[in-house]
Design a protein around this nucleic acid. Structure first.
Lengths: 215, 215
DNA sequence: TTACGATCCGGACCAAGGTCCGTTTAACTT
DNA sequence: AAGTTAAACGGACCTTGGTCCGGATCGTAA
């Protein structure tokens, strides 16, 4: 894998200010320097050997730094990848918070929402390799036979209810809202009661299948 | 972690018929025997030490089998966990394919769809530990600050458009349909063009925000 | 400038996932 | 019953993520 041209080619001159330690108040001089070095090295490795080439040891070596330093700074491999991702993340964030319409303020909410989704869509389509590397195994869940069965079933039901819609993709969305990881996050980490999730599901189904656009 | 009672307590006597090699046509006698042994051992390990205790070597040892055998049979750790999950997966599948209404055939599609989501919801809520273990890192993505910003933004927009709805959860759903891994799956593995995704997003937004009296 | 404490660095070390290949064995043939 | 072959087995071996702690450095205060 990854012998084709990689989407992540650092053209920005000021890669050093990439992710200026958001949460950590102040970093000791050497720590900050090493952090920058590491991010630069990681970006270079990605450009040269693809995401697979970003081994913690390789990054450490390329940055002329000890392996332990990488882990102390970024926690783990995922943390490092996330830090790299943070850059474009903040870009998009700035765009819809203060940029020009229709993404930024000024346009009506509905229009902004449309533009938002499309922006995310295309941004994701670029950094796929990196995005996926930060979430190992992330795509296998979609091809799991059991899930495919669920999807087929939901698609079939949708076809009977809203024949005109893109039922495959609608089914994907519905199933995405039932993702175990999401449920875990909502109930365990955010403390939402199951009843609320249940109500939200029923409401979502109602909205999605409401079939009366009088044009 | 995982010192509390584990949700996965094998009470079923016939654990051996758990996942009877769905795709692989026929398994050699010894292979089938070892497969069963491995699944049994894995289930026991989970019950005793939680999912974290399910080390490939531990499973192999407990099943009195070589490590290589585990990998040949299940591919990797995720594969093994998936195989364990398959059981309840097939159960649910049978329920909505041939079970009694409202889940099974007999009820109107809309009602079945509602019941379906709720069933998945509660099933997921049980096997969380296992589900999550099969998708390492799966829940970290939700707490990532960049994603939180997106969510806040979408929630805010939704509040302006459909103030009566549960906008937080609606936002979660919308964002879930923009998940990078999902986009990758749809475009790369299923070959859908971006234009279709874009259209689906616009349609989804329209459906979700359609604000006409259901009553 | 010196002294000192907090912070950081480095790389040896460990555990666990994943690979490889020579050996064994089940299933089928004659 | 013996032979043949494709498949399965086992466990040594490699890689890589992650931990640990003695020693080096930075920032600061005197």
């Amino acid at each position: 894998m990854s012998s084709l041209p990689h989407p992540f080619t650092p053209q920005e001159p000021s890669l050093l200010e990439l992710g200026t330690a958001p949460e950590e108040p102040c970093l000791r001089a050497d720590a900050a320097r090493n952090r920058a070095r590491l991010l630069e090295a990681a970006a270079r490795l990605i450009a040269e050997h693809g995401v697979a080439g970003v081994t913690m040891e390789a990054v450490a070596t390329a940055a002329k730094v000890g392996k332990g330093t990488v882990f102390r700074r970024f926690g783990d491999r995922t943390g490092l990848l996330m830090a790299l991702l943070d850059h474009s993340g903040r870009q998009l964030q700035a765009d819809f918070l203060g940029g020009p319409p229709p993404l930024g303020p000024g346009a009506p909410p509905l229009e902004r929402l449309r533009a938002f989704g499309i922006a995310v869509l295309y941004r994701s389509a670029e950094q796929l390799e990196l995005q996926l590397a930060a979430q190992p195994e992330a795509c296998r869940r979609f091809s799991h036979p059991a899930l495919q069965a669920l999807r087929t079933h939901v698609t079939m039901l949708l076809r009977q209810i809203v024949p005109d819609a893109d039922c495959e993709l609608l089914a994907q969305t519905l199933l995405a809202s039932l993702d175990p990881a999401l449920i875990h996050h909502l109930t365990r980490q955010l403390g939402m009661p199951m009843e609320r999730l249940e109500a939200a599901w029923v409401d979502l189904v109602a909205r999605v299948t409401r079939t009366d656009p009088p044009a």
